[in-house]
Amino acid sequence: MLYDIWTVFWRDWLVLKRRMPRFILSRMVAPMLYLVAFGWGLGRSIQVIGGSYIDFLVPGILALNSMNISFNSVTPVHAERIYHKSLEEYLVAPICPYSVVIGKVLAAVLRGLISSSIIVVLAWLFGAHFIITPLFLLVLILNCVIFAEIGFFAAMTIASFEEMGQVNTYILLPMSFLCGTFFSTGTLPDAVRWFIELLPLTHTSYLLRGISSGADIALSSVLVLVFYSLLCFFFSSRVFLRLSK
């Protein structure tokens, strides 16, 4: 099983290695824009409790970026399933089906972490202050795991690539902006706030922000993330196991 996970991961690693320079360059664009527009541009005129806006912003960008990257790292599996049918190679091989899910998710976590380190370096260059602890890393990884699993689920269930774009537009994009990434959810109307505080990305944003500023954090949020990652693993494995039905 471990070997099979490694095989699945190895395949993604081969592909990533070949595209590494392009991958890194393209991953720098969006965070740079956020940092310039919201950090330098808007941020100069905004004061948040306990520091500058850019310090507030960086954990939010890390959260939304790791979500987008890990989700979109797994979505090409959709093409492997529908167009190239190369997923059949895994289905006829004597491997444990879970290892495909785990291998793909781990590869997406790796991509999420690489792009997160790019942001950390950029943010530091922009003069932001933050602390990175092991718990900070754990939260970031959990966030990648959750959205990689959701990406895997989408790749297994969605019929066309167009619909994948819709998932990005209707689900990921709103979450990117609303889940405590650019502003605190406290200012939102109650009903909206409750809903948004159920979403995993909100917990990630708050945890990352709390840890990086050295403030107290709610450990229950970590449990929420663990719960989401297990739940998503259950559903993404289930759709994968059902492929042959």
Binding site: R11, H84, K85, A93
Partner: peptide
């Protein structure tokens, strides 16, 4: 299979290697 189902992101050799690894 009836249809060609290689991994389009891999080379000829890598496709075979993936298969061999998947078969331990």
């Amino acid at each position: 299979p009836q249809h060609i189902n290689f991994d389009q992101d891999l080379t000829v050799g890598e496709n075979l290697e993936l298969h061999a690894r998947l078969h331990h």
